[in-house]
Design a protein around this nucleic acid. Sequence first.
DNA 1: ATATAATGCGTGACAAGTCATATAATTTTT
DNA 2: AAAAATTATATGACTTGTCACGCATTATAT
Lengths: 169, 169
Amino acid sequence: MTDPENIDPARIRERRAQEELNIFSRLPAVYAASRVQGQRFLQFGGGLSIVEWRTLWDLCDAGPMTIRDLAAIQQSDHSLLSRALPEMHRKGYVTSHRDDRDKRQTIVEVTAKGRAAYEVAAPVMARRRAALREVLTEDEIRQFLALLDRVEAFLRTPADDLLDMEMAK
Amino acid sequence: MTDPENIDPARIRERRAQEELNIFSRLPAVYAASRVQGQRFLQFGGGLSIVEWRTLWDLCDAGPMTIRDLAAIQQSDHSLLSRALPEMHRKGYVTSHRDDRDKRQTIVEVTAKGRAAYEVAAPVMARRRAALREVLTEDEIRQFLALLDRVEAFLRTPADDLLDMEMAK
DNA sequence: ATATAATGCGTGACAAGTCATATAATTTTT
DNA sequence: AAAAATTATATGACTTGTCACGCATTATAT
């Protein structure tokens, strides 16, 4: 620590530009933007949380199912649902009961009130998807999804495997 | 609520398949996978947290800067850094001091110890990026980034604007 | 010159994720 | 049939991210 180096705006700008080309740096920001926008839309659609919206959508669309099914569809940890469901229950959006055949499972069902909440949010969220299709063509969306599949496959490869692979060369 | 509807595995599978084509549903899972993989790599690279890694990388690469600069590069809220920096300070990775010319700003600088931690993590993280380039060609990465730019631009459009736009048609 | 606005940062409160671990119920082994 | 493994869920602890608000400090207007 001799002379405190000075701030160099040009280097900082350069670093910023570089990070914009780094997929790993972009994903957090893109996801955060998506989450915030989703929350805003949901505000207009009755004030559901994201987890609540996803859950009502799944239940209204595919009928009753277990917590595990919900987590699988939402590609998220079941604990998110374990925590969200009591509140949804309290709000009267869902009912749940233990499965008779397999008493480990909890079967979740949407109520009339839950379906009503879904029906307020659904058109707003549908407009969101429609708006995206005005910005990206069907084909571009397909392209994006195809690349996303491959990026996701990479991201789900365990770190050890990737490091070993590199070492082996 | 007459007869409790039964679970229909086919409908659930269908719902799942449908959600795989929904960009808004995919992003959380893809980002989560990225975060977890990043954390695993960092475990191999000395045990930094993601925020710590990003911050050390920025400082080592572009020299001292303010908290605001760091947040801008990382495209995240300054509060994340406000919270992470005291711990990094305690660990001896960074020093910080108020700017003399503008006493609102805090200038953050990396220490020798911080640079050492960076140098342990950097090759591991470089291998991660190299591994991605083995799965996606340069051109595919460019394509993905180009689409990501447009998706992000969409996601940053305020919900009101998008809803108004739809109404106006 | 002084009131007003904007900026930088810290902090509290929250959402959405993860993982690890515990418990009860079911399956599989032996 | 009893022991061992697996599965479904709940829960605690943690990280990454957001927003809103308050307090200094700086910049802008009148």
